[in-house]
């Protein structure tokens, strides 16, 4: 089972990201569970969403509690790397998927040393970076990075097939689904992982 935390700000669509990937995984025959961490919904406040995906053969996902030690942390806003202890929850063997304007090397170096890249940021096995904000602005014309970051998540983890997201996005966004799919694909291509 892969446990994913999506760390964003209210209004960035982190909960929707988790839901779309859950739908994609289920459509592939996998088991999935998306769970919001529900709080006062304020734009800009840090928000967590949780996602679990497991293979068909692994059986139903039974745990019903927040993800405490994620395998993957998706950071929608790089400013959040400095906020709170969420980043430190990531497993050492885990993957950080970060929306950043910085170069891949610069972001990767933040995760090299214990606590070097801000409070709680520690060494992790894999870092994936993409300028999701740039892509979202260019393709969607909006500063909302959730669907773009799905492309980065898929590139970094292979949790689902990219194509499996088209139907959930169609269902969710209707007319603007195509743009979101395009932003996701562009991010998939541009994401650097190492």
């Amino acid at each position: 089972m892969l446990e994913i935390c999506v760390y964003g700000r209210g209004g960035q669509g982190g909960v929707t990201l988790a839901e779309l990937v859950a739908h994609a995984a289920i459509s592939e025959g996998k088991h999935a569970q998306s769970m919001p961490s529900f709080g006062p919904e304020r734009r800009g406040a840090p928000v967590l969403a949780f996602l679990r995906v497991s293979g068909q053969e692994e059986g139903r996902i039974k745990i019903r509690a927040e993800v405490v030690e994620p395998d993957v942390l998706v950071v929608l806003d790089p400013g959040l790397l400095q906020v709170g202890s969420v980043v430190s929850r990531l497993k050492k063997s885990g993957t950080a998927v970060v929306n950043t304007k910085k170069t891949h090397e610069a972001m990767k170096s933040k995760f090299e040393g214990e606590g070097g890249g801000g409070e709680g940021v520690k060494r992790v096995a894999k870092v994936a970076t993409v300028d999701a904000m740039g892509i979202a602005r260019a393709v969607l014309g909006l500063p909302i990075v959730n669907t773009t970051m799905i492309g980065a998540l898929v590139k970094a983890t292979g949790v689902v097939e990219l194509a499996s997201l088209e139907e959930p996005m169609q269902e969710r966004f209707g007319k603007v689904a195509a743009k979101n799919v395009a932003a996701m694909k562009k991010a998939y291509e541009e994401t650097e992982v190492s």
């Binding site: 839901e19 859950a22 739908h23 289920i26 088991h31 999935a32 569970q33 998306s34 769970m35 919001p36 529900f38 139903r60 996902i61 019903r64």
Partner: peptide, 10 residues
């Protein structure tokens, strides 16, 4: 509430 009402699963 939330544990079922807001959770998406198969």
């Amino acid at each position: 509430g939330f544990y079922l009402s807001h959770v998406i699963e198969d």
